[in-house]
C-alpha cells in the first residue's frame, strides 16, 4: 500500500499531496489520522504494509480523531454528515464531546463556527438538515464540524473535486482564510495542479504509494525534477494558449499487489535508462536545499543530487 511515505508539514503551512487516483494519497491521510503521534508536526515514517482494509482503517481512524488535534474533510460531505440530524445537533454533539461546553455555549459556538466558514444565514442553517443544503453549503458545514475540535491540522481530501468551479473557488478561498485567521495547518490532497499553484506553499508528489518529489511550490512548477511530475504538469490544460495541447501520460498507475521492478514509474517514463529497470532510486535532496524537509527532493536516477550548498 504505502511504502515508506515520509514528509513533514510545517506549522501554518498549506501543503499539497498530489498524484493520480490510486497513488495512495487518501491512504496517507488516513494513516496520519490514525497513526500519527502528534498533529501539528506530523512526521510519519508510516509503514502501512499490513493494513488491508481501508474501510476498517477509516472507522478506527475516525474514532482516533478525538483528542488528537487532527481533523479531516472529504470529497463527499454527505459521508461525514448524518442525514437525519440537523446541522445544529451535529455540530453541537461534536462541541460537547470535544470541548465540554454548556448548552448555551454550544449554541453560541455553533453559530460562530458557521459564521467562520461564511455560511450564509448561519442562524437559520443550524436548524437545517443536510439535504436542504447546496453542494457548497454542505462543504462549508463539514468544514465547520471539523473545526469544532479546534484542530491544528486539517486534512482535506479532494474537498473541491465534486464542486462546480465557482464554488470550488469559494471553498479554496475559505481554506486560505482559515489558515490565515486561525493559523491552521492544512494538508490538501488534490489531483488539480491548478489548485496547487494557486493555494499551496509546498508540494509532495506521490506515485504508487511513494513520495517521488517534494519541493516548494514555485520550484516544483519551475524546475520539476521527477519525470512523473513533469508529465503531470504537461497534462494540465492552459487557457492562455501558452501551449497548444495537453499531453497526458500513457499507461496507468500500477496496483499495489503488482508493482514493476526497479523504479515504479519506469514503464510510463519517457526518460527511462537501463538502471531504472534494475534498481529502485532513493529519494535524494537535489538543488540548493540542504534537508529533505524544506528543500527539494526527487526519487529519480536522473535528478542530480545537490551538494546542499547554494553557491
Amino acid at each position: 500500500m504505502l511504502r515508506q511515505v515520509s514528509f513533514a508539514v510545517q506549522r501554518g503551512e498549506l501543503m499539497a499531496l498530489v498524484g493520480e487516483s490510486g497513488c495512495g494519497k487518501t491512504l496517507t491521510a488516513l494513516a496520519i489520522l490514525g497513526l500519527a503521534p502528534r498533529a501539528a508536526n506530523v512526521r510519519g515514517d508510516i509503514s502501512l504494509a499490513g493494513v488491508g482494509d481501508l474501510q476498517a482503517l477509516g472507522e478506527r481512524a475516525r474514532r482516533r480523531i478525538r483528542g488528537r488535534r487532527v481533523a479531516m474533510i472529504f470529497q463527499e460531505p454527505m459521508s461525514a454528515l448524518n442525514p437525519v440530524l440537523s446541522l445544529g445537533r451535529q455540530i453541537g454533539e461534536n462541541l460537547r464531546r470535544e470541548r465540554r461546553l454548556s448548552r448555551r455555549e454550544v449554541r453560541r459556538e455553533s453559530r460562530r463556527l458557521l459564521e467562520l466558514v461564511a455560511m450564509p444565514d448561519a442562524d437559520r442553517r443550524l436548524r437545517c438538515y443536510p439535504h436542504q443544503l447546496s453542494g457548497g453549503q454542505l462543504q462549508r458545514a463539514m468544514i465547520a464540524m471539523a473545526l469544532a475540535s479546534e484542530p491544528e491540522l486539517l486534512l482535506a481530501d479532494e474537498p473541491t473535486t465534486a464542486l462546480d468551479v465557482t464554488v470550488q473557488a469559494q471553498v479554496i478561498e475559505l481554506l486560505l482564510s482559515l489558515r490565515r485567521r486561525l493559523g491552521l495547518t492544512v494538508l490538501l490532497i488534490t489531483h488539480d495542479l491548478g489548485v496547487v499553484a494557486q493555494s499551496c506553499d509546498r508540494v509532495v508528489v506521490m506515485y504508487a504509494g511513494q513520495v517521488v518529489e517534494e519541493a516548494p511550490v514555485g520550484e516544483l512548477f519551475e524546475q520539476p525534477a521527477h519525470p512523473y511530475t513533469r508529465a503531470l504538469l504537461a497534462s494540465v490544460p492552459r487557457l492562455d494558449g501558452s501551449r497548444s495541447k495537453a499531453e497526458g501520460i500513457a499507461g496507468r498507475v500500477p496496483v499495489p499487489g503488482d508493482l514493476p521492478s526497479g523504479c515504479v514509474f519506469h514503464p510510463r517514463c519517457d526518460s527511462v535508462i537501463e538502471s531504472c529497470r534494475a534498481s529502485a532510486p532513493e529519494l535524494v535532496v537535489i538543488g540548493s536545499g540542504n534537508d529533505t524537509e524544506n528543500g527539494h527532493s526527487s526519487r529519480c536516477f536522473l535528478s542530480k543530487p545537490g551538494a546542499g550548498d547554494p553557491g
Partner: peptide, 13 residues
Amino acid sequence: VPVPDPKRRSRLA
C-alpha cells in the same frame, strides 16, 4: 479556473 502557475496567483472567487 485556477491557473497552473504559482507566479500568477489571482482571486479565484
